[in-house]
C-alpha cells in the first residue's frame, strides 16, 4: 500500500513539475483567467448584469411591487458557473491531450512499463496531477467571486458557494479522465485533443437528445449526462447519484487507460 502511494506520488510530482516547466500551461492559465474575468465582469457589472438587475428589483420592491423573492448572490453563482461549465469544455481537452501521447512519443512509456509500477498507479498519478492543475485554474476565480459575494446581504451559505465549484472540479476530473484515456490511444497530441473534444460534444449533445427521447431510454441517457449532473450541483441540488456518476466517469477513464496501456504493450510492433 505504501509502495503504491509512493509510486502514485512520484508520478504526480513529476507531472506537476512538467506543468510548471511548460510554457503552454501558463498560456492556457492566462487565457482561462482572462475569459473567466471577462465573463464575471459582464455577468456582474454590465448594464443588465446582476447588480443592475438587483437595483431595479429593489426599486420595484420599494415602489410597492409584489415580486417573488430572488437571491441575487445565488443567481450570480449559477450564471457564472453555468457559463464556466461550458468554457472548460474547450480547455480540458488541451490539458489532457499530452498525458500519454508525450510518453509514447518520447519512449518514456518504455521506462514506466519496465519499472515496478502498475499502469493503475501511473494513470491515477497523472489524473491527480492534471486535476490539481485544473484546480489551480479555478482557485483565483473563487477568490474574486468570494470578494464580490462577501458584500451579499443576506450573506450566502458557504456550501451554496462551495458545491457548484466542487461540481466544476468533478466535471473537470471526469472529462480529464476520459481525455487521458483518449490520449493513451494515440501518439499524436493533436489527434488526442480533437478526439477528446469530439467526445465532449457527444456528451454535451447527450443532454439535448435525452430530453427528446421517450421513456426509459431518455431518462437513462439523462442520468448519464455529465452536464445534467453538473447543472444540478450548480443549482445546489446535491444528490449522491450525481457524485456517483462523476465518480464512475473518473473510474472508467482510469480503468480504460490502464487497460489500453496494457494492450498497447502487447500489440506494439
Amino acid at each position: 500500500m505504501n509502495v503504491l502511494l509512493a509510486n502514485i506520488f512520484a508520478i504526480y510530482r513529476r507531472e506537476l513539475q512538467s506543468y510548471f516547466a511548460a510554457p503552454w500551461a501558463y498560456v492556457i492559465a492566462a487565457i482561462f483567467w482572462a475569459i473567466g474575468a471577462f465573463l464575471f465582469t459582464i455577468i456582474t457589472f454590465s448594464d443588465n448584469g446582476i447588480i443592475a438587475q438587483g437595483q431595479i428589483y429593489d426599486m420595484q420592491v420599494q415602489a410597492g411591487g409584489q415580486l417573488p423573492p430572488i437571491d441575487f448572490a445565488y443567481e450570480l453563482i449559477r450564471m457564472f458557473l453555468s457559463t464556466l461549465g461550458f468554457i472548460v469544455l474547450f480547455i480540458l481537452p488541451i490539458l489532457s491531450m499530452g498525458l500519454y501521447t508525450e510518453e509514447r512519443k518520447r519512449g518514456t512509456l518504455e521506462l514506466l512499463a519496465t519499472s515496478p509500477i502498475t499502469n493503475w498507479a501511473v494513470a491515477v498519478g497523472k489524473l491527480l496531477a492534471v486535476v490539481t492543475f485544473f484546480a489551480t485554474l479555478i482557485l483565483p476565480l473563487m477568490v474574486y467571486q468570494a470578494i464580490v459575494l462577501s458584500a451579499a446581504n443576506p450573506p450566502i451559505q458557504p456550501l451554496v458557494f462551495l458545491w457548484p465549484h466542487l461540481g466544476l472540479l468533478l466535471l473537470g476530473a471526469a472529462v480529464l479522465s476520459l481525455g487521458m484515456f483518449i490520449s493513451s490511444l494515440t501518439d499524436s497530441t493533436i489527434v488526442a485533443a480533437i478526439a477528446t473534444f469530439g467526445l465532449l460534444v457527444v456528451l454535451w449533445l447527450m443532454d439535448t437528445i435525452a430530453d427528446r427521447l421517450p421513456g426509459v431510454l431518455g431518462t437513462g441517457l439523462a442520468h448519464l449526462s455529465l452536464l445534467k449532473h453538473y447543472t444540478n450541483l450548480v443549482l445546489g441540488i446535491v444528490d449522491t447519484s450525481s457524485l456517483m456518476v462523476f465518480g464512475s466517469y473518473i473510474f472508467l477513464g482510469i480503468f480504460l487507460t490502464a487497460q489500453s496501456i496494457e494492450a498497447f504493450r502487447f500489440q506494439r510492433s
Partner: peptide, 13 residues
C-alpha cells in the same frame, strides 16, 4: 535496469 534503444528521458526535467 533497462536502457531502451532510445533513452527514455523527460526533456523538461
Amino acid at each position: 535496469g533497462y536502457l531502451p534503444e532510445n533513452p527514455p528521458l523527460y526533456l523538461d526535467m
